[in-house]
Design a protein around this nucleic acid. Structure first.
Lengths: 193, 193
DNA sequence: TACATTATCAAACACTTTGTTCTGTATTTA
DNA sequence: TAAATACAGAACAAAGTGTTTGATAATGTA
C-alpha cells in the first residue's frame, strides 16, 4: 500500500479522534477534520465516502485487533470451571481495548459513543453465545444474550470514559461479580424440568 | 393554552413519531416533518428551536408521565423484603412505558433510540439510588448504579423494540432474575469488614 | 357581538455544509 | 527514467437550516 495513503489515513484518524475529545460527533464538520489533518478536501473524499464511514472505519480498525482469533486458541474451554473461561476472554478483550484507549476515549465520548457501542455490540453478539450456553437461565435466551452483551459494553464505556485507573483484571472482576456470578454458581436445577 | 398551539404541537409530535418508525433520525429533515404534520415552516420553528429539541421535548413529555410522583407514595418501602419494593417500582414504570409504547417504538428505533436512552438513564440515575443502597456489592457504588441503570434501560429497549408480547410483570421478572436476585438474596457479609 | 391578541401560513432570504469535479504538482513504484 | 497514482486547492451545484416578512384566520375576552 502506498505510503502516502497510509500517512493520509492516519492523519485523518488522528485528527478525527482528537476532535472527538473536544466536540460532539454531529457538530464536527468535514472542513474541521481536513483542517486538523491538514489534507485537501478531495483527498478526504478519496479515502472516505462520508463522516459516518470514517467513524465506522475507525471502529473496524480497532475491532480487528480486539477480536483477533488468537484468543480463541488460548482458551482451554474447561467445562469443569464454567465461567472461568469467559472471565479469561473478557480480560483478554479488555487488554486489547486498553491498548487502543487513546482512540477509544474520543470514540466513546458523546454521541459517537453510541455509534461505537452499536458496532461493539454486534461483535459481542457473535462472540458471547458460546459462553452463554452454559449459563443458568429462567429467562429467554436472547434476553440473556442481550443482557450480557449490554452489561459488558457498558462496563467498557464506564471504564474508558470515567474510570481508567482500574486494571483489566479489576474491571473483569466487577463484571463477573454483577453478571457472571449468579449465572454460573447457582444450581442449574431451576431451569431444568 | 391556545387550542391551536396544542393541535400544532400534537401534529408535529405525531408526524415525527411516525417518521421515526420509517427513517433514521439523522436522515429526517425539518421539511419532511412539516410536510407530514402539514404545518408551516415558521410554525415549526415557533414551537421548537431545532430537530434535536423536538426529540428532547417528546422524551420529556413521556418521562413526565412515567416518573410521576404518585408511585413514590404507593411504595411501602418494606426493608424486610429488600428488592421487593424495587421490583414493584420497576413494574410500575413498565406499565407507564407500555401506555406510551406507540411513541416509544418510534423513539427507540435506530439512532434516536440512543438519544432517548441517554435521557432515560438520567432519570433512572436519580430514581434508583434509594433502592441500590440496600444491595450487596463488592464493586464500586457508581459501577453498580451504572450497571443497574443500563441493564434496566436496555431491558426496556429489548422489550419495546422487539418483544412486545411480554407483560410488564414478565419483563420485571426477567430483570429481577438477571440483575436483582444476586444482589438481594446473598449474604451481605462479603462486603462488610 | 366586536375587538385585540396571537397563532398560523407561504414565500423569500442569507448562510452553512456537503459531495463532486477539475487542473496542476509531487510522490511512488516498476 | 517513465507511467501510474495520490495529492492540494479551488470552484461548483445541491441540499438543508434557521430567520424574516406580511397577510390571513382562529382564539379568548370585554
Amino acid at each position: 500500500m502506498d505510503r502516502r495513503q497510509q500517512k493520509t489515513r492516519q492523519a485523518i484518524f488522528y485528527a478525527f479522534s482528537s476532535l472527538l475529545e473536544r466536540k460532539n460527533f454531529n457538530n464536527i464538520t468535514v472542513q474541521e477534520i481536513i483542517d486538523e489533518a491538514n489534507v485537501g478536501r478531495s483527498t478526504f473524499y478519496a479515502h472516505f465516502e462520508t463522516k459516518d464511514s470514517l467513524l465506522k472505519a475507525m471502529c473496524t480498525d480497532i475491532f480487528l485487533h480486539v477480536f483477533s482469533d488468537d484468543l480463541k486458541q488460548e482458551s482451554s474451554h474447561d467445562f469443569s470451571h464454567a465461567g472461568h473461561d469467559f472471565q479469561k476472554e473478557i480480560t483478554h478483550i479488555l487488554y486489547h481495548l486498553q491498548d487502543n484507549r487513546k482512540n477509544l476515549k474520543g470514540l466513546l465520548s458523546c454521541d459517537s459513543g453510541d455509534i461505537f457501542m452499536g458496532y461493539f455490540k454486534e461483535y459481542l453478539e457473535q462472540t458471547f453465545p458460546i459462553y452463554i450456553r452454559e449459563m443458568n437461565y429462567n429467562v429467554p435466551a436472547d434476553y440473556l444474550l442481550n443482557h450480557v452483551v449490554c452489561s459488558f459494553s457498558e462496563t467498557v464505556r464506564w471504564w474508558i470514559t470515567r474510570h481508567e485507573q482500574y486494571t483489566p483484571e479489576q474491571i473483569a472482576a466487577f463484571f463477573a461479580q454483577c453478571v457472571l456470578k449468579q449465572c454460573f454458581t447457582e444450581s442449574k436445577s431451576h431451569s431444568l424440568p
